[in-house]
């Protein structure tokens, strides 16, 4: 809801995502702060932020598949893994980074189409089960392939990304790589909603039988939703591979997929703000738990590092359940409510 006194003289102006001058200024300030952060920040903070950007790209993709098109995908981590392994393979062949990242995205997209094909026959959670198959089959296949192809059990080294003689493999370089692609991911996600295909996604999400009757090619749209979501996952995988410098299948588990989904649900499935808030919230919560865990470890009690990981699982599980039961629209909705209350103050909302 907009406050009084804001008016538009054209539809295009009203339909903009950043509709007021103030919102554009805030975005510019925020972006500028993120750009200058590596100058001031500690190395650990830069690494954390890069991780956050990578998760954000992957969760934006998940938002397109799950939030917009309503197709459950529990293989996002496997898709990220496909992107990472493609990157590792191509970088070892000496392919430059500006080809590697789009190629990783496209390969991942093609891989996802393979598992989206059953959409022609099944719907709902049955379709989710084919993505489960993708997630479970991914490590089995990688481990069974010959060592020289994808590294098998050992994994594969990744050559650092070089662009115009500049090494992007440094923490700062990776930070900006992540920032640029995360910004791109958020920008495309916001704009996808207002596009023809975005509206088709939404129609399929709301009622696929009705969407079919209205002339939307439902099967094709579902496959395209998986493809689009996997493109993001491929990019996330590429940057993750450059960051890890060494990829193994153990980084891309079903559990990681569930984490991505959890971030999306906590953030909110119905607004592109959801992925941002969800990723930031879950990352902060996880970081806080790690700090508490480290403090407990240093104090010398009997708890192991596994307990910290287990505790963060419990917290995320409880967060998802709380979101589902009490606020299915997620943090994004709470944010919008807060903003409305702020604008209407001192008058009550209703």
């Amino acid at each position: 809801m907009r406050p009084t006194g804001i008016w538009f003289s054209s539809f295009a102006a009203e339909a903009r995502t950043l509709d007021t001058r103030r919102s554009r200024i805030w975005l510019a300030i925020g972006l500028a702060a993120l750009v200058v952060l590596p100058l001031a920040g500690a190395p650990r903070l830069i690494g954390e932020m890069t991780n956050l950007y990578i998760s954000l790209i992957a969760v934006c993709g998940l938002y397109v598949t799950v939030g917009m098109a309503g197709q459950i995908n529990i293989a996002q981590s496997a898709f990220v893994g496909v992107g990472a392994f493609t990157t590792a393979k191509l970088s070892n062949l000496g392919v430059p980074v500006w080809i590697v990242i789009p190629a990783a995205a496209l390969v991942t997209g093609g891989f996802s189409v393979l598992f989206a094909l059953p959409a022609a026959r099944v719907k709902g959670f049955y379709l989710a089960l084919t993505t489960l198959a993708a997630q479970v089959m991914f490590p089995i296949v990688i481990l069974a392939l010959p060592m020289s192809w994808l590294g098998g059990l050992v994994g594969m080294p990744v050559m650092p990304p070089m662009l115009f003689g500049l090494n992007l493999g440094t923490p700062t370089g990776l930070y900006f790589l992540g920032l640029i692609f995360a910004a791109l991911a958020v920008w495309t996600t916001y704009n996808l909603q207002a596009s023809r295909i975005g509206r088709a996604f939404r129609a399929v999400h709301d009622n696929d039988s009705a969407a079919g009757v209205m002339g939307i090619p439902v099967t094709r749209i579902k496959i395209e939703a998986f493809f689009a979501g996997a493109l993001y996952a491929g990019v996330a995988g590429a940057i993750l591979a450059y960051m890890l410098q060494f990829v193994t299948v153990s980084s891309f588990t079903l559990f990681a997929s569930v984490w991505y989904l959890g971030m999306l649900i906590v953030g909110g499935l119905h607004s592109p703000l959801g992925p941002i808030l969800g990723v930031v919230f879950v990352t902060l919560a996880q970081d806080g738990l790690h700090n508490i865990g480290n403090a407990i470890l240093q104090s010398g009690s009997g708890l192991g590092g596994g307990a910290v990981f287990a505790a963060s699982s419990v917290v995320l599980g409880l967060c998802i359940l709380a979101a589902l039961i009490f606020e299915p629209r997620g943090l994004a909705h709470i944010w919008h409510q807060l903003m409305t209350a702020f604008r209407l103050w001192p008058f009550p909302q209703n």
Partner: peptide, 8 residues
């Protein structure tokens, strides 16, 4: 969510 919760 129950899967993550129970595993933890």
């Amino acid at each position: 969510a129950l899967l993550i919760l129970l595993r933890g």
